[in-house]
């Protein structure tokens, strides 16, 4: 089964967001005796697909202050040695917090699909 449930609040206010998670049955021969899980990036799939708006950093204005990195709930912003931030669009959920906290207001939230991917560096 492949589920694509956004904001399912049937049981859970805490949005059980299951996004393109492939939950094909394992078959018990390949299953452990009890449900212990291994740390994984993308445990819920590519959460970037949840986005409606993309955060876009204007690197000309960016002061490398790391504030967006500090506040990103998803840990999708990585920093170069000098503090230059990069957003992993595969997983960014598009919450817009980075744009809100940026002291120089140099992150724009643009509608998905309108981002110029060339701009990114």
């Amino acid at each position: 089964m492949s589920l694509r449930v956004r904001s399912c609040r049937a049981h859970s206010g805490c949005v059980l967001v299951v996004n393109e998670v492939n939950t094909e049955p394992e078959g018990r021969a390949n299953m452990p005796k009890t449900s212990y899980s291994k740390p994984s990036v993308g445990a819920t799939g590519k959460t970037g697909s949840w986005r409606t708006f993309d955060p876009v950093i204007n690197y000309k204005e960016c002061s490398k202050c790391r504030t967006c990195w500090l506040y990103c709930p998803e840990a999708v912003i990585t920093l170069e040695d000098d503090g230059t931030p990069h957003i992993d669009y595969d997983y960014c959920k598009g919450c817009g917090i980075c744009a809100q906290v940026c002291p120089r207001k140099c992150i724009d939230m643009v509608r998905k699909g309108t981002r110029d991917e060339e701009d990114e560096e």
Binding site: V17, V41, A43, T44, T47, W50, T67, P73, A75, G94
Partner: peptide, 27 residues
């Protein structure tokens, strides 16, 4: 901010709601 370690223990692509502040605290 610069002194806070870069290593992340909260992994991207988890099931938290977008904007969940719990994840900031956990990080």
């Amino acid at each position: 901010t610069k002194e806070i370690p870069l290593k992340e223990y909260v992994l991207k692509g988890n099931a938290a709601c977008a904007g969940c502040q719990d994840m900031v605290a956990l990080r």
